[in-house]
Amino acid sequence: MAQQHGIIVLVDVNNALKERSLDGNAYWFDNMKFLGSTGEGTEKLTTIVPGAYFLDGSQATEQVLNWLPAALGSVPPTVPRNYLAEQARHTDQEALQGIAELAPADEAELGRIREQAGRRARRSHSSRSLVTSKVLDATGQVAGANAADTYNYPTPVITDITGPAVTEKIIYPAQYGSPDMTYDGWYWAATVDTSRPGVYAYTMHIQLHELVSRDDELVWEPVDLTCESYLKVITDPKRNAFTGAGLGVLPLPAFPPIS
């Protein structure tokens, strides 16, 4: 199988929420620059997809694409998958311990514990994300009294992939579950029909989350936006990145190396 393409869309969530638009607020990447992808790190990424044959002339397998979103200015996606839940549990335990040690009617100390426990936000019914509702800030600490100004933007959520590449049946996107360690177990992937060369646009539907105060309560409000990217299917043969040739056995040494 050829190497899978990873496509990352990095969203400037703060500006996107302010402007209610992803124009100028989404930066695209893939790991195929060495094959000829253009516009890495910009709004205008064209992902290269080599064609239907391997270098040795044999028929290639279909190309697989994976999409992953990330938020600029947030806790990065490299923290463990259950990070939000772990932080919520940990700070709750600390707060409970604080209450247990509390002298009666110590108002100052109660205020301190309240800050330490942080604030919780309710989840809107149409929201598609957020493992836990405890509000963290951009450094991974619980966000207290200033939560509305300091909260960590949750990772954007891809809700759909549409556009010419889909309607013309060049890609077949779908959301999959996986034991992936860093992206909450869900990701969007597609297979590409590499037999029809050309440039095809697709639209990514992305849901951001804004923390709003309503009826004296914090609520995660979903905001749905879209942005566009491109696939360029070419006729160049696929290569095995190890051997530079087609599919086949890897060049193993004639005898096992001595360790």
């Binding site: 620059k33 990065p76 200033n146 300091t150």
Partner: peptide
């Protein structure tokens, strides 16, 4: 007492391949 920042930090993110 936990210190509470009043605003988000100005984040500089390095995306590395």
């Amino acid at each position: 007492k936990p210190t509470q920042p009043a605003a988000r930090p100005l984040t500089i993110t390095a995306v590395v391949d």
